[in-house]
């Protein structure tokens, strides 16, 4: 079984490298993706696109060598070193450019988090296992088709689960489905939010005419019949007062506004 695993190992690593190279060499927005990646911090703004493409070319060659016959321990050794390098790059990205995107497997923005490390570690272990490959992976599949296909499916499922870039294909729809079934925010509370009233008030001629006098955010608000009353502190020179607005709760209609002078000194 161990020999089967070792023989099979170059295939998933190679396929993942080929997928990664596709983004870097054939992507529609390669320069943009490159500049968003931590590679920009590593090699600088001017060289980042070239370096990103060079990495893609390296991934293409190595991926092709791993997937195509014959099987070679040198290929596996290079792949192991490359995966270790990837882990190092991720560590650098996390430390030096935590807001940048991985730029690894897709054009989607995917900051470097624990899953990126776990995926790189999975690749590193798999590439290391490939060092003991007794022969080409196709032979292992022919010998034990069910077991090997099952293993490969499990490996790719795990790699997908560890790829934040692929969340949009399975995790987000799954979470949306859960929200649709459970309605976690569904407890609807009737009423008109203050924000809605403020939106109407801020746009009104009444508020605009008083805006130079108003010094505070909302002091108080309450509902009175079909009106919502909102008050602000107002000041004109040394004169203090309260600007009082009455906004129709229905949203349309005349807004009433008065300035009421302070009936006592404004003290705490």
């Amino acid at each position: 079984m161990l020999q089967t695993l070792a023989a099979l190992a170059p295939l998933p690593v190679g396929v993942l490298l080929l997928l990664a190279s596709r983004v870097k060499l054939l992507g529609k927005n390669t320069p943009e993706v490159a500049r968003r990646s931590a590679l920009r911090k590593l090699v600088g703004d001017e060289r980042v696109v070239g370096a990103y493409r060079a990495v893609g070319a390296g991934e293409l060659v190595l991926g092709a060598l791993l997937v195509l016959p014959p099987s070679s321990v040198v290929e596996a050794a290079v792949a192991t070193a490359a995966c270790a390098g990837l882990l190092g790059y991720l560590g650098y990205a996390r430390l030096k450019a935590p807001d940048s995107s991985c730029g690894c497997l897709s054009e989607k923005v995917a900051p470097v988090r624990w899953r990126s490390f776990a995926r790189a570690a999975l690749m590193l272990v798999t590439a290391a296992v490939a060092l003991g490959a007794p022969g080409y992976w196709l032979g292992a599949i022919a010998d034990r088709p069910l077991a090997t296909v099952g293993l490969l499916a499990g490996w790719f499922a795990l790699a997908s689960a560890l790829s934040a870039e692929l969340d949009g294909y399975w995790l987000v729809p799954l979470r949306r489905l859960r929200v649709r079934l459970s309605h976690p925010l569904g407890k609807f509370v009737p009423g008109i939010p203050l924000e809605s009233t403020m939106d109407i008030l801020y746009r009104s001629a009444e508020y605009r005419s008083a805006v130079g006098l108003i010094r505070s955010d909302v002091l108080e608000w309450w509902d009175e019949g079909t009106w919502r009353i909102v008050t602000f502190a107002a000041r004109n020179g040394d004169e203090h007062g309260t600007a009082v607005f009455a906004v129709p709760l229905a949203g349309d209609g005349e807004i009433k506004a008065v300035l009421v002078p302070a009936d006592e000194p404004v003290a705490a």
Partner: peptide, 12 residues
């Protein structure tokens, strides 16, 4: 670089 900004609903 300096921009000059005014609230469309304000005065300043």
């Amino acid at each position: 670089h300096t921009f000059y900004v005014r609230n469309l609903c304000g005065a300043n």
